[in-house]
Simulated scan of single mutants.
Amino acid sequence: MKKIALVLLSMLLVSACAPEIGSEDWCAQLKEKPKADWTVTEAKDYTKHCIF
């Protein structure tokens, strides 16, 4: 039971560190990342939230 709680807490902490998709921080972070390293989903989200 303790292991499950530890894993869930770890996942919560890790997911809290990433900026929300479409936020100004996320757009800036993706702008810094080389475009060759973008996933298809990241490219679609960037176009949808940061350009239009």
Rank of each mutant, 00 (worst) to 15 (best):
D25I: 02
C17W: 08
I21C: 05
E20D: 09
E32A: 15
S15M: 15
Q29C: 00
S15T: 15
E42S: 04
I51T: 15
K33R: 08
E20M: 12
D45I: 00
Y46E: 08
I4E: 13
L9D: 04
D25T: 07
K35T: 09
I51W: 00
K35H: 07
C50D: 09
I21H: 01
A5V: 10
G22C: 04
M1T: 07
G22L: 06
I4F: 05
M1K: 08
L9V: 11
W38Q: 00
L30F: 03
F52Y: 07
L12G: 14
G22I: 05
T41Y: 07
I4G: 05
E42A: 04
M1F: 13
K44A: 09
C17N: 09
I51A: 01
I51P: 08
P34H: 11
T41L: 11
C17S: 13
M1S: 14
C50H: 08
A16Q: 08
V7W: 08
G22N: 01
P34N: 05
D25V: 11
K31V: 03
Q29I: 00
I4L: 15
L8F: 14
D37N: 13
K48M: 06
K31T: 07
W26F: 04
E42W: 03
T39D: 05
L9G: 15
V14Q: 06
P34K: 11
A28L: 12
K44M: 10
K31E: 15
A5L: 12
C27V: 09
T47M: 05
A16D: 02
W26K: 13
K3M: 07
W38D: 00
K31Q: 15
L8M: 12
T47I: 08
S15H: 07
D37Q: 15
D37I: 00
I21P: 09
T39C: 00
P34R: 10
L12R: 02
Y46L: 02
V14L: 14
S23V: 13
Y46M: 06
L13Y: 08
H49L: 03
L9R: 01
A43Q: 10
V14A: 14
A16E: 01
Q29F: 01
L13W: 10
M1P: 03
F52T: 09
I4Y: 06
W26H: 06
W38H: 14
L12Y: 07
F52I: 03
E32K: 15
E32S: 14
A5K: 12
P19Y: 00
S15D: 02
K33W: 02
A5N: 04
K33C: 01
K48L: 13
S10E: 00
